[in-house]
Design a binder for these strands. Sequence first.
DNA 1: CGATACGTTGACGGAAATCAACCCCGGTGG
DNA 2: CCACCGGGGTTGATTTCCGTCAACGTATCG
Lengths: 242, 242
Amino acid sequence: VPPRADHSHALTRKISSVLELTLDERAAIARLPVTMRTVKSNADIAREGDRPSQSCLLVRGYLCRAKVLDKGKRQIISFHIAGDIPDLQSLHLRTLDHDLTALTEAIVAFIPHQALLDLGARFPRIADYFWRETLVDASIFRDWIVNVGRRDAYMRIAHLLCEQATRHKAVGLADDSGFPLFLTQAAIGDATGLSGVHVNRVFQQLRAAGLVSTGAGRLNILDWAGLAAAGEFDAAYLHLAQ
Amino acid sequence: VPPRADHSHALTRKISSVLELTLDERAAIARLPVTMRTVKSNADIAREGDRPSQSCLLVRGYLCRAKVLDKGKRQIISFHIAGDIPDLQSLHLRTLDHDLTALTEAIVAFIPHQALLDLGARFPRIADYFWRETLVDASIFRDWIVNVGRRDAYMRIAHLLCEQATRHKAVGLADDSGFPLFLTQAAIGDATGLSGVHVNRVFQQLRAAGLVSTGAGRLNILDWAGLAAAGEFDAAYLHLAQ
DNA sequence: CGATACGTTGACGGAAATCAACCCCGGTGG
DNA sequence: CCACCGGGGTTGATTTCCGTCAACGTATCG
């Protein structure tokens, strides 16, 4: 049974991990004037320099935000899972400062900025949710700066895997045993500031240490405590609990 | 003549770089119930894990936000100049996920969260300003991820210097020729993920290339175009102009 | 069945860390 | 007044982590 592919299910599930929605609020979310679209893996949804008039709710699949340097190197800024609105900040920042790209085939719902502003005006709790969501976004950025700035390759990747597992669990997309492996090793390299080759070697170390295994399209976490210790992972920065 | 050391001057100047304040708004800012405090260089103003009930407006001097790893390494997350409210996000995120530290002797004004929320409720344009300010914060984080993730040491430092110069100019704290050198080479290392020793060597290259000079407590930019090119600096991510 | 994308392996080189001095300068106290 | 001290900047020798290049393996798909 494939997961449901409507926008309100994905968004409601995500918001519900933070606050209990009323029937009115659920109804208003369901009535948002969305434009659904399917995007192919690796396709750009928006580009640096764009001035979007709508934001993009991810319904199914995986997206990332990234910047590309002159010499062609790419740095991934964030990964996104169902329920995220990766370009929510474009509500208040006119021009996009990064690309928004599909990591897998994905279903997205475009929501006009005005509709989001109206929703927030009618339901202040939802406005607060959006506001807070961008603050959590920023908190994760802070942690990524630490990750690429001060951790070695082994810690970086261990930390990233812990983060992804935790975020998947928070919205009910995974259990303790692991999560869908939507990332290529090259993408992990672009997110951690490493080369794909080196990511591969680190994965071999992680497997040899009995921390993780890969297979059947999943990343399996065999030793959560060990992986968290290896990455010095502390979920506080995800601000999951109020 | 020392710069004025009252909170409303610093905050008003910063906000005015984005929007024109009315007399009412200025008056309300002046009447904020602040607690002024002087902090010594290198002193912590708040620590990771704190649950602050007030935010900190920087009136004079320089602050940074940073995280410290188990092994003692430090990663600076952001630098702050007069007019900034570095922990504004604590309005909505209960526990602080980083330290807030003085880089120089500084004067700060603590403002109770409730007073900021009230101010925003009375003056929606100021609420929007705060909201937007945290989004710009996040945008700068994104750029720092790219800086430490994908640029080499020479580019990283050139980029950082361009950013600081631009931000100083934006609030009238500097002109084209440079800005007050509030950063030790060790601090630049902690911000760029480099060792202090290597920062020193890169500075020698930057000087040899005729891009910058240091002296009399200032960093002088001798060749702005050259420095910007060296750091692939594009100010778009600072979102200075609406 | 070839095309393509992703993972894996080895050899080699280079950018930056580390370690350990040393210098310079302003402040402080005997 | 000068000796001492500490913080910041500078230098050189050595090491290490990781990038680059290039090849090869393997699975999925049209």
